[in-house]
Nucleic acid binder design. Sequence first.
DNA 1: AGTCGCCTGGTA
DNA 2: TACCAGGCGACT
Length: 264
Amino acid sequence: MPELPEVETIVRELREYAVGKEFSNVEGDLVDFNSEIKGLVIKAIKRRGKYIIFGLSGEKLLVIHLRMTGCLMWEVQAGREKYIRAVFSFTGGTQLIFSDVRKFGRIWFGEEKKLFKKSGISRLGLEPLESNLQNFHKVFPRRGILKNSLLRQDMISGIGNIYADEICFKAGLHPSIRIEKLKAEDIKRLYLSVQLCLREGIKHCGVSVSDFVGTRGELGKHQKYLQVYGRKGDPCYKCGSLIQKTKTAGRGTFYCPDCQRTGN
DNA sequence: AGTCGCCTGGTA
DNA sequence: TACCAGGCGACT
């Protein structure tokens, strides 16, 4: 489940090794643009929310969303051979491989305007690490359930299930608290928690609890620092109460019953 | 705002 | 064998 920090980790690695490479071939059941991409050169690599955006020569873009189990790797890892969905070959012989067990991942190629619309990038909201308290406050919904709002990519892009729970814990707010009950100081704490949790995740090269690995197959380290996610029945690091698990927004939701305010 | 469908592997 | 994992779009 790559979220913003995991995608950022991949983008930083790609920037180091993929920029300047020229496509010589692309194949796989996920691509329908083989001939058009041949000969194009990777000029820049960006991240927007959970999307990876390759800026190519000829004003073309290659966009990849890893969704749940997508991986980009320079070499096929043992056991992942049967999940290869696309192979990007570069002049000189190196290859970038896209593997994806659950086939939710998506790849788009084309000209920016059309592609941003088709891929959903144009619907993305605030880029959290390029925001400030003022614009965070502005885009944050005035009503609804807190966790649902954090997961809305059209409000703030890049937060997924793991970081949503961690952000709520850090802010001392129950994931299902209603936003109507939040005061300005809560929104400020929420904003700071978003910054902190995402930056910590990036610092530790992401969370590897299921499928996430870097482009060389290396594991992230941030799973060791998670405060609530995946810790059902374990004592809270802050107060010792046992971490609970419920369902919010259709997803497994972890929280500390004593550190996180419900508003009731 | 809630639920389903897309997928497959891992686990109770 | 049934359920769970959860990103996202579509639908209600």
